[in-house]
Design a protein around this nucleic acid. Structure first.
Lengths: 155, 155
DNA sequence: TATTGTTATACTCTATAACTATA
DNA sequence: TATAGTTATAGAGTATAACAATA
C-alpha cells in the first residue's frame, strides 16, 4: 500500500516562474506609481515609447506584437489614449484594412516628459545589480523570452 | 540655438524593464493556457501552490505578501476560489481580527492534479536555457527582486 | 495607534467569438 | 483563404478609501 505524500511544489521550472513573476510584479507596481500622477499606466507608457521609437507609424497589429499584447487588448488601450489626444489612428495609405498609429504632438510631449521624469527610476533599476550582472540578466531574459516564444511570432 | 532631437528610448534600465515584461507576459500567457480548461488562472494556481506549500494555514495578509499581491486584490481572488470550494477561511484561534486560509480536500486535490498536469510545461521552462544558465537566471532574478523590494517588505 | 479584514467602487488589461471589409 | 480591425461581452486582477473590530 502506497503512502500518501503531499506533492511538493518544488522544481526549477516552478521556481523560475515564481521568481520571474515576483520580479515583474514588484517592478510593475513601482513603475505604475512612477507614472500615476500623470494619469498614465506603465503599460500605456510602454506603448507610447514603442511609438516614439519608430520613425514610421505602426499598424495596430504591429504595435500589438511590439508590446506583447493582442489586437483586442491593444484596441482598448488605444481608445483610452486616443481619447486623451495622445495618439491618432489614420487610415493606411495602401492597405485599406489597416490603420497607422501615431503619436500626436501632445503625445510626443507627454512621452518625453514622462521619459525624463522616469530617468531616476531607470537608473535605479540598472543599479540594483552590478553592471556585469545587469548585462547578464538582460541577456538571459532575452534568450529566455526568445526561446519561449512560438517561433513564428519571434521578431 | 539648440537642435530639436527626438528623445531616444534607450537605456539599460528601460531595456531591462522591457525584457522582464516581455519574458513575464509571454510566460504568463502560456501558463494561463495551461490551466484554462480547468477553469483556474495562472495567478490562482500560484495561490493554491502557496497554500499547498505551507504546513500551517496562512492569514490573508501573509498570503498576500507571499504571492506579491495586496489584501484587497487577494480578497477578490479568495472569494472566487472559496465559491469553487477550493479553500476555506477560518477564524484565527487567537487573533480575532484575522482569518486563516486553508485548502479544502477538494482544493488539495485540484492543486495536485494541476501540478501534475503542468509538469511538462515546467520542464519546458527549465529546458529553454542550459542548466547553468537557468540557475544563473534564477539567481539574478531573485537578487534583482530582492534589491527592488522596499526592505521592510523583504521576507 | 497600528493592524486585519471588509465594503464599496472603479478602472485597466485581458481575451473570445462573431463579424465586416479588404488583401 | 487569410488578415486587419471592430463589436460585443465578460472576467480577472488591481487598487484606493473609508470603515469596524481587535491587537
Amino acid at each position: 500500500m502506497r503512502k500518501m505524500v503531499r506533492i511538493r511544489t518544488k522544481s526549477t521550472g516552478h521556481e523560475l516562474a515564481l521568481s520571474l513573476r515576483n520580479a515583474y510584479l514588484t517592478m510593475h507596481r513601482q513603475t505604475d506609481a512612477c507614472f500615476a500622477e500623470a494619469g498614465v499606466t506603465a503599460d500605456q507608457f510602454v506603448l507610447l515609447c514603442a511609438l516614439a521609437d519608430e520613425k514610421e507609424a505602426l499598424t495596430q497589429q504591429e504595435l500589438a506584437d511590439r508590446i506583447t499584447s493582442d489586437r483586442n487588448t491593444l484596441r482598448a488601450m488605444l481608445l483610452l489614449l486616443e481619447e486623451k489626444k495622445l495618439l491618432r489612428r489614420d487610415p493606411h495609405p495602401t492597405d485599406k484594412r489597416a490603420r497607422l498609429v501615431r503619436l500626436t504632438p501632445d503625445g510626443e510631449q507627454v512621452q518625453q516628459v514622462l521619459w525624463t521624469q522616469s530617468e531616476t527610476f531607470r537608473k535605479h533599476l540598472a543599479s540594483l545589480l552590478s553592471p556585469e550582472d545587469t548585462e547578464d540578466l538582460l541577456a538571459l531574459l532575452r534568450r529566455f523570452a526568445w526561446a519561449l516564444m512560438p517561433q513564428e511570432d519571434a521578431p
